[in-house]
Design a protein around this nucleic acid. Structure first.
Lengths: 260, 260
DNA sequence: CGAACACTTGAACCTAATCAATGAGTGTGG
DNA sequence: CCACACTCATTGATTAGGTTCAAGTGTTCG
């Protein structure tokens, strides 16, 4: 059960970012970062200052952990840079990725509100930096700013609904369909803001895709190979480019939503 | 997509309760009911009075709906009597049961906080009565009682974690194992408060079990039959009695939690 | 260059879905 | 009250979809 023993406690290699090498954010940018964060948006600037000054800095190399399944939930985090996998160990030695965290997203707060042991581990998918507050600090801040609790309800509710979506996909759809949907989601090609036809690329291991859709890396590889053969996608190591989003969407749509 | 067309828009038959016929709750009992409800516990009695007097009464016969997938979320409910299935239509004409609601439990509030269209339908599994408030009333009440928002965060966080649990089970476990776990959960034989050896019975259709674990009624029937043959359970129509919880638990434990 | 990691592919196997047919329990109406 | 209708449950035969095992190739990094 010690995640140190996880099958994928893999290398501590350096940053691994192919295309757009983002410049390291200046420390002053933290305020802007927090303002984009659903938990804190709308908070008065002076309060943000206080928050930032009371934050700890945490980093993790690729493969390293911010916290482990089973830990008492001591801190709340906001990712500054990098990418984090929220992962849970499952039956028969398999793992499930609950979600990916991107910069400006908060993580690790669910167990804090629920006051239960951590149900997921937070593992850096790339070298990552985060701000962290201990639970007491956050609790005190929320007591002083009750409106923050009200704002917190909404992202929480959206998370619940997102969980229902995934539950449904997992319970009723085929693997190929689930992979297509996950890819569209990861590529942010879902929802109405998305461009219908522009290509998009996703940086993700096939192993991670498998753990997102509840399948195996073997099956995912076969599916992607088939798509590649038919020209639907481009595949490189840890990189999947969707060449034809329109056709892709046809694979991913819910057959039920089509019938009148 | 109209849930009226759902494959199981079934009969509007009368109450169907075999064993312990609970007496209809007196109206004055509403206060006690709300106090047991996680959303409202700790609310001052005089506020509860106000809430109760502003509530609407809603009923649904077996198979009827309190609300439908796709509806705008106009009301928040608390179940008074009966049993409600939160169900979501899935791919290939299948359905997923997101959860069952029992008396004193709130339901229908997630979409209200998230301010999105309903993602699930609420269908009466037995003849049911509920209290309902429109979203504006609740919003006003919460604005006057910010501490309620803070209390609301916790059940919400627990729901998120519960969703992760199910996601994990669905993604990594076999059907037999999932059925065993769901049965233990429905029988409230899970957690530390549960008696280790006392038998327990669950009233549920095998079809519902299938929709809870993401499988088919055929497979569930086979599994239950095998268990019956080995004396693990007793099966009657819409009723499953666990004869040997200890042996049952062995089927349901996570193999990972056993290994050192 | 070698080691670790990511990905690929064939072949065997197996779980669970599907199809088909039937039985058993419950409520309804003549 | 009995026959009919309906829902719920069972069971065998068949098969599709996906996992598992085994044995690779290609990439990246130290």
């Amino acid at each position: 059960m010690k995640p140190g023993k996880l099958p994928l406690a893999r290398g501590r290699s350096e940053i691994d970012q192919r295309p757009p090498r983002r410049p390291p954010r200046d420390p002053a940018g933290s305020a802007g970062l927090l303002q984009r964060c659903p938990l804190f948006e709308g908070t008065a600037p002076e309060d943000l200052e206080g928050l930032i000054s009371s934050a700890h800095r945490r980093t993790a190399k690729r493969g390293g952990f911010f916290f482990l399944e089973g830990d008492p939930p001591s801190h709340v985090y906001v990712l500054v840079e990098g990418k984090v996998r929220l992962v849970r160990s499952g039956a028969r030695g398999r793992e499930v990725i609950v979600g990916f965290i991107e910069p400006a997203e908060p993580f690790g707060y669910v167990a804090v509100w629920a006051a239960t042991a951590r149900r997921v581990s937070a593992q850096a998918a790339q070298e990552s930096r985060a701000l962290a507050w201990d639970a007491e600090t956050i609790a005190r801040f929320m007591a002083q700013h009750p409106e923050m609790a009200m704002r917190g309800l909404r992202p929480m509710a959206e998370r619940v609904e997102g969980g229902w979506d995934r539950l449904r996909d997992l319970a009723t759809g085929r693997v190929e369909w689930r992979v297509a949907r996950v890819l569209l989601r990861l590529a942010h090609l879902t929802g109405r803001t998305a461009d219908a036809d522009s290509a998009a690329a996703v940086e993700v291991r096939e192993q991670d895709l498998a753990e997102l859709v509840g399948s195996t890396a073997y099956t995912v590889s076969r599916i992607l190979s088939a798509w590649k053969r038919s020209g639907l996608v481009d595949i490189r190591r840890e990189r999947i480019a969707i060449r034809n989003p329109r056709r892709f969407r046809e694979i991913a749509v819910d057959p039920m939503d089509a019938s009148p």
